[in-house]
Design a protein around this nucleic acid. Sequence first.
DNA 1: ATCTCATATCATGATACCACGATATGACGA
DNA 2: TCGTCATATCGTGGTATCATGATATGAGAT
Lengths: 129, 129
Amino acid sequence: MNDVVLIGKALADPTRVRILYALLQSDLCVCELVDALEMGQSTLSSHLQTIRQAGIVETTRRHKMVSYALTEEARPLVEAIMHLNQASLETDRRIARDRTRTAERLALRVHGVCQLGPGQLDRSEDRKK
Amino acid sequence: MNDVVLIGKALADPTRVRILYALLQSDLCVCELVDALEMGQSTLSSHLQTIRQAGIVETTRRHKMVSYALTEEARPLVEAIMHLNQASLETDRRIARDRTRTAERLALRVHGVCQLGPGQLDRSEDRKK
DNA sequence: ATCTCATATCATGATACCACGATATGACGA
DNA sequence: TCGTCATATCGTGGTATCATGATATGAGAT
């Protein structure tokens, strides 16, 4: 029962849904998430702990960074829920922005690995418009 | 996104998980749930509204009573999540008691319909032991 | 229409959760 | 060992959520 509740809590907050949706694109380290989702590092970190306790994500160290990934067991569930509400997700502005910023941040990887630390993708990108 | 969060919130509380688990057994009216799960009517009712807003249950009137049932769309999802954590649910004392009391309350139906109102299954059952 | 009874909503106090800044941890390089 | 830097945890003020008792709604029966 408690396990179900933990999974529920993991999905019960918009910020955490954004994180899960981003992790559906790719494994990501904290600094990449900070840049992609534009939120404070402490905020992000505590949400990641919440999701981790639910058994939905797991961590691995890559050099200095800690990388977060969906677990094998949770991925089908997360995909199912996200797909079930695909319409509501695809029309969401915030999610759309997250997705492009995640892609931009991933493009900065070297040999498929994050090397840079947080603060790479600042608002200067907006001026291109 | 909002839809996903609503589903999450629906699962994010032990009381609501108990309700959903009971509804997995059978459609139930509010008075049956009050007896089976042993909780206040107002508490139960507001949780039911939460779950309803998430699109997980729907209501139909049966005589004086309002019956709650899992929706067609949500049932597979709920079953998936419950099954995924079957172990944690089957060892749960509260869930076990809920299940037997739900069965006891269902046995009081006439022609498969609840006729009785709340307060049927009181603690006198315990004295049998 | 009025009474009854099942269900819904309201008001309230207690608890939990959120975002954010400040501080702590802990791995790596010098 | 001593910095450095990415990540984790702590403290705080504001907001949401919970359980419960009191009250409101609304359908069926008289």
